[in-house]
C-alpha cells in the first residue's frame, strides 16, 4: 500500500508528523495559558511573544555567546521565566482586583512592545537556527523517513506536558496550587503564601512558552512575528477545549494540530482557517468547549 485516498503515503505521513509537531506547540502553549488563567484569572496575550522571545534567546545565545542547543533548552526557559516573574511583580499584580479584561489588555500591550522591539532590531525576516547534530538526519521506518528532530519535538513536548500534569495533579505543591485556584482567601488562611504561588505560576507559564520557543527554533524560522501568528490559533484551541482540564488542553492541542496537517493534504486552501472553523462549529454545538464545564 503506497497510497491513502489517492495521496502518496510518504506525503501523507509527512503532513501527519508536521501536524503532530504543530499540535505539540498548541498543546504546550494552551497548557500554559490554562495554568495562568486558572491562577491569575488573566488571559496572557503575551504568551506568543514569550514563545518568540524563547526562540530568539536561543538564537542569540548561539550567535553571540556560542551557547549550544542543549544548554539553551535549560537556560532560556529560566530567563523567560524570570522575565515573567518581573512582569508579574511589576505590573500584573496590580490588576487582580479589576475586571479580567484589563489583564488581557496589559499583556496585549506587552506583546506589542516585545514584538516591536525585536522587529526593530532584527527585521521581520526569519533567522535560521541549525538543528543540533545529534538530532539531524532521519529514521528510516521502512514506509517513511521520520526526521529525528520532529520526533524529538513531539517526545519532548509530551514529556513536559505530562510533567506539568503530574506536578499539578499529584504533588503537594500542585495541591496547594489547586486549592489557591479554588479559593485564594481560604488557602491563604491556612498559611500558604498565595501571592508567591501566583508569582511562580506566571513564571512557570512563561518558562513553558520559552521552552516551546527553543524547541521551535530549529523547525521554524526565528522571526519576531512567529508568536502572534501562533497565539491567535492557540486562543481558538483554548476556546475549543475549554480551560478547565489539563489533559483536555493537551489532547485538544495535539488533535487540532493533526487535523490541520491532514487538511493541508486534502484541501490545502483551508489549512490556515480549519481551526477557526472547528471553533465556530464547537461554539454552535457545545458552547462550553469540549472539556469545559457549563457555567
Amino acid at each position: 500500500m503506497s497510497e491513502i485516498f489517492g495521496i502518496p503515503i510518504q506525503a501523507f505521513m509527512g503532513q501527519l508528523m508536521l501536524g503532530l509537531v504543530n499540535g505539540s506547540f498548541y498543546a504546550m502553549l494552551s497548557l500554559g495559558l490554562a495554568v495562568i488563567f486558572g491562577m491569575l484569572n488573566i488571559i496572557n496575550f503575551s504568551h506568543g511573544a514569550l514563545y518568540m522571545m524563547g526562540a530568539f534567546l536561543a538564537w542569540m545565545g548561539l550567535e553571540y555567546l556560542g551557547i549550544g542547543y542543549w544548554p539553551a533548552l535549560l537556560l532560556v526557559p529560566l530567563v523567560v521565566g524570570l522575565f515573567g516573574i518581573v512582569v508579574e511583580r511589576s505590573m500584573l499584580q496590580w490588576l487582580y482586583k479589576l475586571d479580567h479584561l484589563y489583564g488581557l489588555l496589559l499583556t496585549f500591550g506587552l506583546a506589542l512592545m516585545l514584538e516591536g522591539l525585536f522587529t526593530n532590531i532584527y527585521g521581520v525576516s526569519g533567522q535560521p537556527y541549525t538543528i543540533p547534530e545529534e538530532l539531524s538526519g532521519a529514521f528510516n521506518l521502512g514506509f517513511m523517513f521520520l526526521p529525528k528532530y520532529r520526533a524529538w519535538v513531539i517526545v519532548a513536548s509530551l514529556g513536559v506536558c505530562f510533567a506539568t500534569w503530574f506536578m499539578i495533579e499529584k504533588t503537594r505543591l500542585g495541591a496547594n496550587l489547586r486549592a489557591a485556584t479554588e479559593n485564594p482567601q481560604l488557602t491563604q488562611a491556612f498559611g500558604i503564601n498565595v501571592p508567591l504561588l501566583v508569582m511562580l505560576t506566571y513564571g512557570f507559564g512563561a518558562a513553558l512558552a520559552g521552552f516551546a520557543g527553543v524547541l521551535a527554533a530549529p523547525v521554524i524560522q526565528v522571526s519576531p512575528l512567529m508568536g502572534s501568528h501562533l497565539i491567535i490559533t492557540v486562543f481558538a484551541v483554548v476556546v475549543i477545549g475549554g480551560m478547565g482540564s489539563i489533559l483536555g488542553s493537551i489532547i485538544t492541542g495535539l488533535g487540532l494540530g493533526v487535523i490541520e496537517g491532514l487538511t493541508r493534504v486534502f484541501y490545502p486552501e483551508a489549512s490556515a482557517t480549519v481551526v477557526f472553523i472547528i471553533m465556530a462549529i464547537v461554539l454552535m454545538l457545545r458552547p462550553a468547549g469540549l472539556f469545559g464545564k457549563e457555567k
Binding site: 505590573m91 490588576l95 484589563y102 496589559l106 500591550g109 506589542l112 512592545m113 514584538e115 522591539l117
Partner: peptide, 14 residues
C-alpha cells in the same frame, strides 16, 4: 511605533 503603542497600552491599563 509598535513599541510606543504597546507602552501606551501598558501605561493606560496601569
Amino acid at each position: 511605533v509598535t513599541v510606543i503603542m504597546g507602552a501606551i497600552f501598558v501605561f493606560c491599563v496601569l
